[in-house]
């Protein structure tokens, strides 16, 4: 028996290069900034508590050093958040869902509908304030969500969720 390795023609495959990416809602940047502010306040509280309990750190040098370090950290946090959010986009195709994220390390994730185990729609407190939602897509074997599409308008998120579940049902029947 001779085994033949077939040549696969790239042009015959549906390509991810010609995808029209849809950016997430711009309001999500405000949500992400609010989340970062919350974390920053928590970090500030931890620093203040450390100064409060330890007398040897209560010197001008330490106040100044930690103040500058904290300020730089907060500013870098805002810059990175902005750059990261700007690159986030998604694409819903007939047979799969794609999500793009990251600024420094860029990632493209793709999952076909027939591999989806379940989908959940989440709204955090800040997201509710701006009528936004997050769709989490789960595949087999993982307890954590595999693909998380953040910054979707509530009604759009509902539509996408319904579409994904419909397509999942269709592909299951095939």
């Amino acid at each position: 028996m001779s085994i033949v390795h077939l040549q696969i023609q790239p042009e015959q495959l549906p390509s991810i290069e010609h995808i029209e990416w849809k950016a997430i809602d711009k309001k999500y940047l405000t949500v992400a900034n609010l989340v970062w502010i919350t974390y920053s306040i928590a970090i500030l509280c931890a620093i203040v508590f450390t100064f409060f309990v330890s007398e040897k750190w209560q010197t001008t040098n330490w106040y100044l050093t930690s103040g500058i370090a904290y300020f730089i950290l907060v500013v870098i946090g805002f810059i990175l958040t902005k750059k990261d959010i700007r690159n986030r986009a998604y694409a819903i195709r007939e047979r799969d869902v794609l999500f793009r994220k990251g600024w420094w390390k860029q990632t493209i994730q793709a999952v076909t509908y027939n591999k989806i185990q379940h989908v959940s729609l989440n709204k955090g407190p800040y997201e509710r304030m701006f009528r936004l939602a997050t769709i989490k897509i789960y595949t087999a074997g993982n307890s954590l969500s595999d693909i998380k599409i953040t910054g979707l308008q509530e009604d759009v998120a509902e539509q996408i969720k319904t579409f994904i579940l419909q397509q999942h049902a269709v592909t299951e029947q095939l």
């Binding site: 990251g102 420094w104 390390k105 860029q106 990632t107 994730q109 793709a110 087999a140 074997g141």
Partner: peptide
């Protein structure tokens, strides 16, 4: 048996 695919790239 692939559940999902991802491509990562650093600068």
């Amino acid at each position: 048996h692939i559940q999902f695919v991802s491509i990562n790239s650093s600068p």
